[in-house]
């Protein structure tokens, strides 16, 4: 993997943040990443999009991204400058969408209890740990091989571009 670590300032959200909260239905005619970014997590709290300029890591509770399959949710987070989401667990479709679009998503059980809003956090991909503000480290679940292959290809569509050019290899 080319990415070795990701560092940033944390915005903390709770359990079961659904994709309607990440991008409310009224914005679904948008597809531009930057435009969607202006509304990221607006359904949860209208003040969040303004905060995401300085907070670029999201720490979430369980089941982040549940509900609708809208890929707009991932695009909005990317458009708002979010570099990664660290959660107790992710909902299935959101997790796949994030991988396919190159948004780093790691599952670190216990993280939501140990991080506060505004903390600095490092995701160390080589060691497989999250480094907390206190210096304490928290291991995250290893990323599956199939998932790594997609990330390494630069996302699903880049992988597809290569397959279409060179045939299935």
């Amino acid at each position: 993997m080319c990415l070795k670590s990701v560092e940033g300032i944390v915005l903390v959200v709770g359990d079961n943040v659904d994709t309607d909260a990440i991008v409310p239905g009224r914005y679904l005619t948008l597809t531009d990443t930057r435009e969607l970014g202006k509304h990221a997590l607006e359904g949860l709290d209208p003040s969040i999009p303004g905060k995401l300029k300085e907070r670029n890591l999201i720490v979430a509770g369980r089941n982040f991204g549940c509900g609708s399959s809208r890929e707009h949710a991932v695009l909005a987070l990317l458009g708002a400058g979010v570099k990664a989401v660290v959660a107790e667990s992710f909902a299935r479709i959101f997790y796949r969408n994030a991988i396919n679009r190159g948004l780093l998503v790691v599952e670190a059980p216990g993280v939501s209890q140990k991080v506060s809003d505004g903390d600095r956090l490092v995701i160390d991909l080589e060691s497989g740990v999250v480094v907390l503000a206190s210096g304490e480290t928290l291991p995250f679940k290893p990323i599956a091989r199939e998932v790594l292959e997609i990330i390494e290809a630069g996302g699903l569509i880049e992988r597809l571009r290569k397959e279409l050019q060179y045939g299935r290899g």
């Binding site: 399959s69 890929e71 479709i93 969408n97 396919n100 679009r101 699903l156 569509i157 597809l160």
Partner: peptide, 10 residues
Amino acid sequence: TGIGSSEAAY
């Protein structure tokens, strides 16, 4: 099953 827009393209 439900998938994302990128996977649909794939």
